[in-house]
Computed example of a mutant assay.
Amino acid sequence: MYLAKIYVTYKPSILDPQGEVIKAALKRMDYVGIDQVAQGKYFEVKLNAKDVDAATAEVESFTDALLINQNTETYRFDLSLVSDEVDV
Rank of each mutant, 00 (worst) to 15 (best):
Met1Ala: 13
Tyr2Lys: 02
Val21Gly: 07
Glu73Lys: 05
Ser61Lys: 15
Lys11Phe: 06
Lys46Asn: 07
Glu44Leu: 10
Glu85Asp: 14
Lys11Gly: 06
Tyr7Thr: 15
Leu47Asn: 01
Leu79Trp: 03
Asn71Glu: 13
Val86Thr: 12
Thr9Trp: 02
Ser80Cys: 11
Ala54Tyr: 05
Leu26Thr: 05
Phe77Ile: 07
Thr63Ala: 15
Glu58Leu: 09
Ala24Lys: 14
Ile6Gly: 01
Ser13Trp: 08
Ala25Ile: 06
Leu79Glu: 01
Asp30Phe: 11
Val88Tyr: 12
Tyr42Asn: 04
Asp51Ala: 06
Asn71Trp: 05
Val21Arg: 05
Lys23Gly: 02
Gln36Phe: 08
Lys27His: 15
Leu15Gly: 04
Leu15His: 12
Phe77Pro: 00
Lys46Trp: 02
Val8Tyr: 01
Leu81Gly: 03
Glu20Cys: 04
Leu67Asn: 00
Leu66Val: 11
Lys27Tyr: 09
Lys27Thr: 12
Asp64His: 14
Lys11Met: 10
Leu67Val: 01
Val8Met: 05
Tyr2Ser: 02
Leu15Thr: 07
Leu15Tyr: 14
Ser13Glu: 15
Ile22Arg: 01
Lys41Glu: 05
Arg76Asp: 06
Lys27Asn: 14
Lys50Glu: 14
Pro17Phe: 06
Val45Leu: 05
Lys5Ala: 07
Asn48Ala: 13
Ala55Met: 09
Ala55Gly: 04
Tyr75Val: 06
Asp30Asn: 15
Asp84Ser: 13
Asp30Gly: 08
Glu58His: 06
Thr74Cys: 02
Ala65Asp: 09
Tyr75Pro: 00
Val88Trp: 07
Ser61Thr: 10
Glu85Arg: 11
Leu67Gln: 00
Asp87Asn: 09
Ala24Ser: 14
Thr9Asp: 08
Asp64Ile: 03
Val8Asp: 04
Ala25Thr: 10
Leu81Ser: 12
Met29Glu: 12
